[in-house]
Computed example of a mutant assay.
Amino acid sequence: MKKTKLMQLPKGFLFDFDGVIVNSFQSHRSAWESAFKELFHKELPAFPMELAGASPYKIAEYYASTVGKENQFKDLYFLKDEHLNKFFKVPELLPGIREITFFLKENNTPYGIASNATRQFLKNSIYHLNIDFETYFGVQDYKKPKPAPEAYITLANKLGFTVSDFKDIWVFEDSLTGTTAAKLAGMVPIGILTQYSDSELREAGSQFIFPTVLEAFEYLKTHVTQK
């Protein structure tokens, strides 16, 4: 029987939030719908796939443009953020998150979240889902959100890593936007199949692909030497 070849556990693990840790589509959609209706008195248009993983600023610009109100995109952004908190809907926790955070803690491996979602949404979700993430950054924490690499560089620096460590850091991403950010940061993008296909994620730069974080956790258990 062929023996599994072991590799060293990566130095750190960085996570996107929406589509990797949680399914939050309904949480965001309902907040966009109510904010859009309050501000423009119209129904919200369909969400364009090309904006998956984009910052809420970009999404607000798009929605405002659909009714010819580009100059009010900031009003829409802030109102959506207000509705997201006021009418907070707990997102659905995706498979493998509790398992992998326990595994990383057990192996003294730093990890955290860098998301294009707002910091308050991350805080609310982490609290209500009772998941073990002490370090997290939201869109307000960067000058340039994803696809720029700043989000992941900011998180890696906070976790104590230097640039020389980046090539040994895994980044879990489900969007092309976030995969590009991880690649530009010089880290290892790991694709999660909640939005895009295997081929699309690989083309964007993902070096491994898993259906969810649960399969990534199972892979790590059998393929890495633990500390």
Rank of each mutant, 00 (worst) to 15 (best):
W32A: 04
F47D: 09
Y57R: 11
T179V: 15
M49Q: 12
F25E: 15
Y111L: 08
E218I: 02
F137C: 04
Q72Y: 13
L93W: 10
R202M: 09
M7Q: 15
I169W: 01
M7N: 14
P145L: 01
E173L: 04
V20Q: 05
T154M: 10
P189E: 07
D165V: 00
K221N: 02
D75K: 00
T4W: 07
S65K: 04
K3E: 15
S197H: 03
P211R: 10
P110K: 00
D168C: 09
A156H: 02
S206N: 06
I21D: 03
E150T: 07
D18E: 10
Q226L: 15
A182G: 06
L214M: 09
L155G: 13
S34P: 07
L129A: 04
E134T: 05
K227I: 11
V224W: 07
L159E: 03
F102K: 14
A204Y: 03
A156Q: 07
Q26K: 13
I126R: 01
G205A: 06
K2C: 13
I59T: 12
K86H: 14
S115G: 01
S30R: 15
A117K: 08
E99V: 05
M49L: 13
E70W: 04
F78G: 01
L93R: 06
G68C: 03
N116T: 10
E215D: 12
L129T: 08
E82Y: 12
S197N: 05
N124E: 10
V171P: 09
L79C: 03
F13Q: 01
V139E: 11
T179F: 10
L214S: 10
L44Y: 00
P147Q: 00
I126T: 04
K158S: 11
A216P: 01
K227V: 10
E50Y: 14
K143R: 14
Y136F: 15
L220V: 06
A60S: 15
F47M: 07
L159A: 02
T222N: 13
F210C: 06
P56N: 01
L184M: 14
S34F: 09
F13I: 11
A54I: 08
Y152W: 12
M49A: 12
H128N: 14
E38V: 03
F78W: 13
P95W: 09
P56T: 08
E218A: 00
A151R: 03
A156Y: 07
N157H: 15
E70Q: 12
F47I: 00
T194L: 11
S55E: 01
G160H: 08
K11I: 09
N85G: 15
V171M: 08
E134Q: 09
F15C: 03
W32C: 10
S125M: 11
F210K: 02
F73T: 00
K69N: 11
F17C: 05
K227S: 10
M49V: 12
F166D: 09
K74Q: 04
P48T: 06
F210D: 00
Q120I: 11
I209C: 09
G191T: 07
E200K: 13
V171F: 02
T118S: 15
Q140G: 06
V171L: 03
H223C: 06
T154D: 10
